[in-house]
Design a protein around this nucleic acid. Structure first.
Lengths: 290, 290
DNA sequence: CTTGGTATTTTGCCAACAAGTAATACCAAC
DNA sequence: GTTGGTATTACTTGTTGGCAAAATACCAAG
């Protein structure tokens, strides 16, 4: 019996957690704590830990339970686990749509047939796609793809929008610097600028940059700014995965990121907001030229 | 056999359309046109027209088809039609949640039991609620209400967010004034300020004001601004329906709306944006005081 | 009191069929 | 070419029951 969808997902999250927090080897992985953190019950956590133990990612503790084996787990572990199915189909549909292989309107059963899904699987995927804003249920039967990000215009629009909200988020009165988080993403960007950028693929590069911007926005403590940014990035992700991202420009962007983070850490918010504005508008012009 | 959910909905939209556009009596209601406009096929349009004809809202034309009887249809018609079921349950769940009658997490079957729904009905409702951003599916079983708008803080946050995006939308380079639309909402606001405001209930008042702000944002021609505003308002709606809206303050707000519209019509966008900023921030301070 | 182990309850998915209705194509009339 | 009428196709919903697995409660050990 193959591990369940949720089990794989939970396993991937656990790996992410160990890697991101650099949890020391030997630390106990407490079921209840993980369950609370991942918003599931202990059952899938238990199964996920068993799965990870079988593949040698975590160690079984002496009197039951599991402990961390190594903070630097191979990245593949999370990806392998995640590749349950949903994610792949989700990206496939998005990709096919961007390629123009899917019509503007489509019925659920057509999708079920074309991608060989069960109704519930498709239900999950459509739920996600519609919550991310690129597909919409019609009043009657069928779904309609929304024109988001398919055109160059809407791509530019997304940057204009970020140009408005990201600097504004920094200047919000509720803004409180999360020094630790900012330092972490700052160092990550520094490493990228120092050359690590050439070793990453599009997905990882996008995710790191996305986390950088989101971490800053989160300091605004205003859920509307945070969620608005998140929504834009969720859409952007679908396109960026498919683009060629020139790495030389990427180095410049990372340096700008470092600079913005340094300004924030120095408490110079107004300047940071201004740099952020310049940073985002430079990307805009760059894109429209190419 | 009672009319179907979709039929009622389409009927309500047709009534909305006739009222909003003030379609002259005697005009033919063309099935295909309506179907395209409402993004459904002719079948439900036909059923809806039959329904409206039976209740005397539209007239049967001589050689088949239907014509408009009177541009000023009673508002109840749309509401009666809409009250099919979904909408009522949707608002009931939102209301119960705001009252604290529903726990933070809840399962689908609990909702099915509590509100006497079929799975597909609940599916539709959850889809909508999650796309509007106030409920979220957990990784395992169950759903979680998001803390949006339940607290005074997040209510204030929503205004801070609008304070950022609405003036910015006016200043977007892609902004193109839709003179006709702006004039229409301007006049509507003028009528409100002249006293009509005292004859409206919360729902209608909210909708009119919401349309005003959205019409302006739409001139930005940037879907991200438009959608972000729409999302905030969809959430706000759930709360505002339940508040007491003091009408005297409302009059002042309507006057400000008229003023903003006039500035836009005069092509003075920068000033309009500034007035919009003041307008929104005055509401914020007013709320935090009360 | 915290943690891991175990048992019980409940949930949501699956499958397949029936039924009603939305989408679509076609036709006739003006 | 439009428009309304009609027929056909194909889609989604509503069933039902069975089942794997997620949630939950309980227990024992340290």
């Amino acid at each position: 019996m193959p591990p369940t969808q949720l089990t794989r997902q939970v396993a991937a999250r656990i790996v992410d957690y160990i890697r991101a927090e650099q949890v020391a080897a030997g630390t106990r992985l407490v079921e209840r704590t993980l369950a609370d953190q991942l918003r599931v019950s202990r059952s899938p956590v238990r199964n996920a830990l068993r799965l990870l133990a079988d593949s040698g990612a975590v160690a079984e503790a002496e009197r039951g339970g599991y402990t961390v084996l190594d903070a630097d787990l191979p990245l593949d572990l999370a990806e392998d686990a995640e590749d349950g199915a949903d994610e792949a189909v989700y990206l496939a549909i998005a990709s096919d749509r961007l390629d123009g292989a899917l019509p503007d309107r489509i019925t659920e059963s057509a999708l079920v047939r074309q991608y060989g899904l069960t109704p519930a699987q498709l239900n999950r995927i459509l739920r996600r796609a519609s919550s991310e804003g690129w597909i919409e249920r019609l009043p009657g039967y069928g779904w309609e793809f929304r024109p988001t990000l398919t055109s160059e215009q809407s791509y530019a629009d997304s940057y204009r929008f970020r140009l408005t909200i990201e600097p504004a988020a920094i200047l919000e009165p509720t803004f409180v610097l999360d020094r630790q988080a900012i330092e972490q993403v700052r160092d990550q960007q520094q490493r990228l600028a120092d050359g690590a950028i050439h070793e990453l693929d599009n997905v990882e590069l996008f995710n790191i940059n996305h986390v950088f911007h989101e971490t800053i926005a989160e300091c605004s403590r205003n859920g509307f700014f945070i969620e608005a940014l998140r929504r834009v990035d969720n859409l952007r992700r679908l396109v960026e995965y498919r683009r060629r991202l020139p790495r030389d420009r990427g180095v410049v962007r990372c340096r700008e990121h470092v600079e913005i983070a340094d300004l924030l850490l120095a408490g110079r918010q107004a300047e940071a907001a201004e740099r952020m504005r310049e940073h985002l508008s430079s990307v805009t012009t760059e894109k429209t030229v190419s």
